[in-house]
């Protein structure tokens, strides 16, 4: 049996050996959902967007370097997510563990992860958005040129040209 499992492991099949979740990226889940359907998986991803209410839980979307996916949490667990990523900040990065559904029977056939564990890997932080001086100069220059053209046109109209 062990040899068979070892052979399958070498073949790259995601067998949850001894109950361990399969560590996977989001793009792999989306690209081959049937392969991971019903298995315990873990993803390392940034919490993004908003907390969304649902019956008996909360939705939070998670984005790794490849893609984003929706994770369904018990509301008490979702409260551990403090920073949700967006324009102003990079959200908390977690290892999210839960059962993956290619077509969730509880959520209208949605592809989702029903999460039961969260491990904070990196706390969220504000994203710096420096202002480029070159862009400001470009904008000011173009504005001046537009104003001159507008003046030229209005002057021409006044003269009846």
């Amino acid at each position: 049996m062990k040899r068979a499992l070892f052979a399958l492991f070498l073949l790259g099949l995601p067998v949850p050996i001894l109950g361990q979740p399969v560590s996977v990226n989001v793009a792999s889940l989306l690209a081959d959902p049937a392969r991971y359907d019903g298995q315990k998986v873990s993803i390392e991803a940034e919490a993004i967007g908003d907390r969304l209410h649902a019956k008996h839980g909360t939705w939070v979307n998670f984005l790794d370097t490849t893609a984003a996916v929706g994770c369904f949490f018990p509301t008490s667990l979702a409260k551990d997510i403090r920073h949700l990523g967006g324009y102003e900040l990079k959200g908390d990065v977690f290892r999210v563990t839960g059962v993956f559904h290619a077509s969730c029977p509880k959520h209208g056939g949605e592809l989702d992860i029903h999460a039961d564990r969260l491990e904070l890997l990196q706390e969220g932080r504000p994203t710096p958005h420096p202002i480029s001086r070159a862009k400001v100069a470009l904008a000011a220059g173009l504005s001046l040129a537009s104003a001159l053209l507008g003046f030229e046109i209005s002057r021409g109209r006044t003269k009846g040209v």
Partner: peptide, 11 residues
């Protein structure tokens, strides 16, 4: 692998 009428509708 669709689940139920709701899955058929929503997806």
């Amino acid at each position: 692998g669709l689940v139920g009428p709701l899955g058929v509708f929503r997806r």
